[in-house]
Simulated assay, not measured.
Amino acid sequence: MSVYTLQTLAEHLGAQLHGDGAVEVSAVATLEDAQSGQITFLSNAKYRKFLQQTKASAVLIKAEELEFCPVAALIVKDPYVAFAKVAQLLDTTPAAADGIHPTAIVDSSAQIDPTAQLGPYVVVSKDVVIGAGVQIGAGSFIGEGASIAADCKIWPKVSIYHRVRLGQRCIVHSGAVLGADGFGFANERGQWLKIPQVGTVIVGDDCEIGANTTIDRGAIGDTLIGNNVILDNQVQIAHNVQIGDHSCIAGCTVVAGSTKIGKYCVIGGACAITGHIEICDAVQITGMSMITKAITEKGIYSSGMPATTNLEWRKNNARYRQLEQIYQRLRDVEQELAQSRNVTGE
């Protein structure tokens, strides 16, 4: 268990300390549940009532909240970002593997750094390269010619196909599949003919790939995931997709083939994005949206309809079905008004 004084944390964060710098903390917690020896944060003023009652040893807050804080405080510009940095220091997540387990199967041609860790029943195929500090959890498969750069953490039962490349410090969660074939078929008189997917997947540095997320290999070129891209659980990335640096995609979203997503994009959960389009930098797409054409200007885009009562939904659905009739009637009324103005000389 790691223990830090408030003075050390203040120096690490560049924060202004109010209170005893010798106070020690060893864990993070919520404002409502924090106890002595723990540090918490306040980033939303609506939770201020919990601040005044907190039993935490210290709180990460903005300067304007200091007067409401009954315990030691670290004054920061963004409490949530500061909380993330402190949580990293106090992280108690175990390693994905410890040492080289005797049941691991490693091809003699594989290049494995001496500091890498391989869990039980890991399979490392021909010509694989595994960098320093890599951890690969139990039952994971690393395909021929794949490379995993330094300090990646691969959780159990991950499948990394042939020639897939991961950058440094990536995290891949259980059940993820990187480099499976894309959905490439030609149809000859009703018969589906498979098109071999000969590209691969290239993932940049500092990426995180959620549980049961799939990233298909390129059909001819490569599927490209930029630096510091985060993909939630159960996300589907099709072949030849490109995702720019620092973008993120929430759970259950699907991105069809050959689409290009820019840098700093934020895409909500359960979205569907069609193939062969481009989305420019700094676009936000709210959950359950369907994107069917290119987005060329940064901003927020939405199409998903929020739930309402069943009665209201049925009424609106009935009206929607009459939309064409309503449109025709409105056009007829506009034409009649225009003719009337012509007759009266208005």
Rank of each mutant, 00 (worst) to 15 (best):
K126A: 14
A27Q: 08
T93W: 08
V59D: 03
T40R: 00
P70R: 03
P94W: 05
K77R: 13
Q88C: 09
A82E: 03
L42I: 10
L42T: 08
S109M: 01
Q35T: 05
D91K: 01
G119H: 02
A73M: 08
A95I: 02
Q111A: 09
A29L: 06
L90D: 04
T54F: 04
V124S: 08
P120N: 05
Q38N: 07
V81Q: 14
Y121V: 03
I61E: 00
I100E: 12
E32T: 15
C69D: 07
T93S: 15
L89N: 05
F50Q: 12
A104V: 11
D107C: 09
I105L: 15
V81D: 11
E67S: 15
S43L: 01
F68P: 03
V122H: 10
G37S: 00
K49S: 10
F41H: 01
G131R: 01
L31C: 03
T40G: 02
Q52K: 14
C69F: 12
R48T: 06
S57C: 02
L31P: 05
Y80Q: 12
A104G: 13
L51P: 09
K55H: 13
I61K: 00
A132V: 00
A34P: 11
K85R: 15
H101D: 15
G131V: 05
A58P: 04
T103Q: 14
K85N: 13
V134D: 01
R48A: 08
